[in-house]
Amino acid sequence: MEHLSGFVLPNSGHNRDDEASKMGMWLFLFTELLLFGGLFIVYMVYRMLNHEAFLLSSFELNVTLGTINTVVLLVSSMTIAMAITAIQKGDKKTSVRLLLTTLGLSLVFLVIKYFEWSAKIHHGLFPGMDFYNNLPKGEALFFFLYFIMTGLHALHIIIGAVLIGVVVHRTRQNKVNQEKYALTENAGLYWHLVDLIWIYLFPLFYLIH
């Protein structure tokens, strides 16, 4: 924006507006929900059509690792919420520490996910592999949905982690502080959404009865 002297409106779009940025984040989260929503619809339809196959395939997944990951994400949601409270109280040091903890937990999640995925790929269950191509169609659909949905979720974890990294950097630069912490809140909102989606993915894939 070219900054000129002269008449400037009181309600300028270039003023700082924390409410607006939070509203923007909420609206963005709606779109994220609907993005996954499309996949949830496909999941629902194919699970109804292939109930037995989905049940059988779900036994292939490691419930223990899935549970650990669920706990990891829930704790990370708590730590980022605490980081927001800390910055609100002006305690930047604690806020940064809690953000780094969240970042660490996101790495733990990704590492566990990596081992889960590589075990499946080792068994030839990734779409396009020979073993996968010979699976009955219900099971093939299950593993396709498993990979695309947890994959898209993992991508969101990575984006969230980068965002948290930015917040840590900005906090250290004092660009995020007690007076100005909308960025931390937005990162928190995003992280909670990523967490929330996992809360649905976990039972849908691991806990079918």
Binding site: T31, L35, F36, L39, P127, F144, I148
Partner: peptide, 21 residues
């Protein structure tokens, strides 16, 4: 819009990976 986004991605996945969606 997000719904068409994910649907079009599924078409791509079906073409590339040969999944019967």
């Amino acid at each position: 819009t997000p719904i068409i986004g994910i649907t079009l991605l599924m078409i791509t996945a079906e073409r590339v990976l040969g999944v019967g969606l």
